[in-house]
Amino acid sequence: MNDPTDHDAETPPAHAVATPAEEPGSIAEPVSVSEPLSAPEPPQEEPSGEVIIQVRGVTKRFDQEGTTVQVLSGIDLDIRNGEMICIQGRSGAGKSTLLHILGTLDLPTTGSVSYHGRNVTRFTSRELAAFRNATIGFVFQFHHLLPEFDALENVMMPGLVQGRPRPPLRKRARELLESVGLGHRMGHRPGELSGGEQQRVALARALVMKPEVILADEPTGNLDTTTSDAMFKLFFELNRELGTTFVIVTHSDDLAERMPRRIVMSDGLIAGDLRRPSPHQQPPLDAPDHDAQPGASLDPL
């Protein structure tokens, strides 16, 4: 399953793809990157992974028609490799803005965002484009697929932007779509897909470049409970199997409670940073008693 050219074509992050190995037993093993489970460490208060994103003193101010809105007023945050983080908060708390700043779609007014120690706020727009393409995958609330392209092409798009050769890219996109359960709908345009399918295509697209980090802005905001449960299940699987770091903004307490790390924002500040003790030992969604213990392991700071 492992296509060597596929790996050669990429510029994987330093930690990723240490040993491309066959994983016959894995259920969701269509993805050729299949990394040996990279977060086998027992969850602790201070997880051990390398800090890949370092946010220091980030503030964001919008000047609109004379009135200044302070959206973020000093955020410090470390995100480690392989973490699954959700950001919660009321509307206007600055979650989305923080996510955009993390994704380099927006620049902080002050402060810095560093990936692997490199301050991305100082990048040129060209460097940023290349950086985003290689390092970050986005999943948006409104999926934001390109309507003129079918599912397969949409998934291929980040690679196409990079000018990757198409045949291996197509192969990988096909595998990704199969892994998110859309192998039969590759030729369909977004308009012909349901909301859940669209979001899964968007997820496959976010994954196609094997990014270190996936930033998701209310990925299940438009989906019904069942679909969003499936979505989250997928997130957990990917996190477990690929070691991809997820930062997810969500309104849903129900889902947030299952996340290993919850960041609660309020008025542009981090009001709480909660860790669940054992995210990986707990099967994400298959335990019916999840809802019975809401917040049991979440200690407010």
């Binding site: 994704g103 060209r126 484009a129 290349a130 985003r132 290689a134 934001h144 390109l146 309507p147 980040p158």
Partner: peptide, 16 residues
């Protein structure tokens, strides 16, 4: 415009 935004989020440069 929206598609342009998506493309840019995916790392398309302004020149492209």
């Amino acid at each position: 415009a929206r598609e342009v935004g998506i493309l840019m989020a995916m790392g398309t440069t302004r020149g492209d």
